[in-house]
Design a protein around this nucleic acid. Sequence first.
DNA 1: TCAATGTATATGACGCGTCATTGAATGACA
DNA 2: TGTCATTCAATGACGCGTCATATACATTGA
Lengths: 125, 125
Amino acid sequence: MATTRDRQLVEQWRSIQNSYFRTAGAIDRALEAKFDIGLNEFEILDLVAESEESACRMKALGERTPMTQSAVSKVVDRLEKAGLVSRQTCVDDRRSLFLELTEAGRALHSSAAVEHRALLKENLG
Amino acid sequence: MATTRDRQLVEQWRSIQNSYFRTAGAIDRALEAKFDIGLNEFEILDLVAESEESACRMKALGERTPMTQSAVSKVVDRLEKAGLVSRQTCVDDRRSLFLELTEAGRALHSSAAVEHRALLKENLG
DNA sequence: TCAATGTATATGACGCGTCATTGAATGACA
DNA sequence: TGTCATTCAATGACGCGTCATATACATTGA
């Protein structure tokens, strides 16, 4: 039986969906147009930029985004091909990788971050 | 320059992303496992079920979900192939289509809706 | 009544994310 | 030290959503 509570939940859910899709779509299109990277690429760039000092393992990224391990790997592929990030092998544990922003990556990130924040403000209020 | 306001926005955004991905993922897997339909299929089924009396045009669906027109069309393809929905041509405007739940569609929807609501409650609190 | 323009849906090429699996390195423990 | 299980990351097959278009029908207005 469809309770009022149920309807509330469904409304709340649809509202989250809209919030998410509108915002993600807007940011994605803008970053694509101005910086030629997608939203997920930016998100990873952003995470790498954040953890700059304690050099950033792939593993750690996976824990900070809802993306799959394999998605992260492919996003990093693209970022690396675009020359924005570089994978550094890790001596302590040779299964692991560290990620570093290249100069180009750092530059692009700081411009793109401005746009990103602006669009968040616009869309999330 | 990275203001506190910016950090707040980014936090808020990540929280929405997590909410969305965790919830969508959980529902999608559950529906897939128990009813063999994905989340988007269910969402469309749900919308069709809602507007049952004022027969439901494709067009109207597009306005009620963040999905693309073309995505909706393909979701409906799958639902139709699965025998859950049928497309009825519209006499007034032969470009349009009405959607109807089949018996199987109605049955599946009412079971799946229970699961759906339960998972929303669990994930959105 | 006949363009020209607009609207409702379908379709194909394409990119990306996911799942399952693989390969390589590590750890645990007898 | 030698197995066996575990962990990190990469890869290939696959499904789905998107964009740009196509197709069919409708509407407008001269």
